[in-house]
Structure formats: structure tokens, C-alpha cells
């Protein structure tokens, strides 16, 4: 089977979010210890279970206040990609998730 391109995967995610997928945007990790708890949970999710990764990380298709992927440490602007190994999914610069870090 042909592999889904980055763009196709990004479109699929956008559709899921536009379609009203409810993700866990709270609680926002107050410190790195709480952050690690979420990351550990993500690490147990199968790599191809995109929906579950979106839900646990709290993916949103819009920014929260000043926070958005664009400025996040893990974001690769040119590839439009979240490089946090436990997420490893495409994202638009204006999106957000609760693992946002600067």
C-alpha cells in the first residue's frame, strides 16, 4: 500500500479536528514533571493510532492565547511537523497542543 504523504496526513488530521474531535486540552502541564506524565502516556500509543495521539496530546486547530506550534520548541516550521518523538505528526503553524514548550 502507498504510504500517506506528510501533506495527506496533515489534511486528514485537519479534517478530524474540523469535524469536532474532542482532545484533552487540559490540564496544561505546569512543570516538566507533569509534562513527562503526558509524554509517557503518549509513548504507549501505537505509532499509527493518530487519533489517540491527537486526543492525549490535546491537539487543537487554533492557538491558545500567545501559544502556537509556530514558536514551540518541537516544531519544524519548514516541514510543518511536530518533532516531539512521542507525537511525530504534522501540524499547521497556528495549531497548538498541551505539550507546547518554548
Amino acid at each position: 500500500m502507498r504510504e500517506e504523504s506528510d501533506k495527506e496526513l496533515l489534511d486528514r488530521i485537519a479534517k478530524m479536528l474540523d469535524g469536532g474531535l474532542k482532545t484533552m486540552t487540559e490540564p496544561f502541564p505546569e512543570d516538566n514533571f507533569q509534562f513527562d506524565v503526558i509524554v509517557r502516556e503518549l509513548a504507549h500509543i501505537k505509532k499509527d493510532d493518530v487519533e489517540k495521539k491527537l486526543v492525549v496530546s490535546g491537539y487543537l486547530n487554533h492557538p491558545i492565547e500567545e501559544m502556537r506550534c509556530m514558536e514551540c520548541m518541537y516544531y519544524l516550521n519548514h516541514r510543518k511537523w511536530c518533532n516531539l518523538p512521542e507525537i511525530d505528526l504534522p501540524a499547521e503553524p497556528d495549531w497548538w497542543c498541551r505539550l507546547w514548550r518554548i
Binding site: E30, N32, F35, M70, E71, N77, R101, I102
Partner: peptide, 28 residues
């Protein structure tokens, strides 16, 4: 070590708001 997504200890001599500003600009 972070507090609300921002490193607790910043490069010496850099304050939090400058850090956020220059990080955003550099990232862009």
C-alpha cells in the same frame, strides 16, 4: 526544568520576557 512551558533557568543575563520574544523571532 520548566514552568508553564518556559525553562525555569534561562541563559545567564536573559529575563523571561526577552527570552520569549527572541525565541519566537528566532523560531520564525
Amino acid at each position: 526544568q520548566t514552568v508553564m512551558g518556559v525553562p525555569k533557568e534561562l541563559p545567564l543575563g536573559v529575563d523571561k520576557s526577552s527570552y520569549i520574544k527572541y525565541t519566537g523571532a528566532a523560531k520564525a
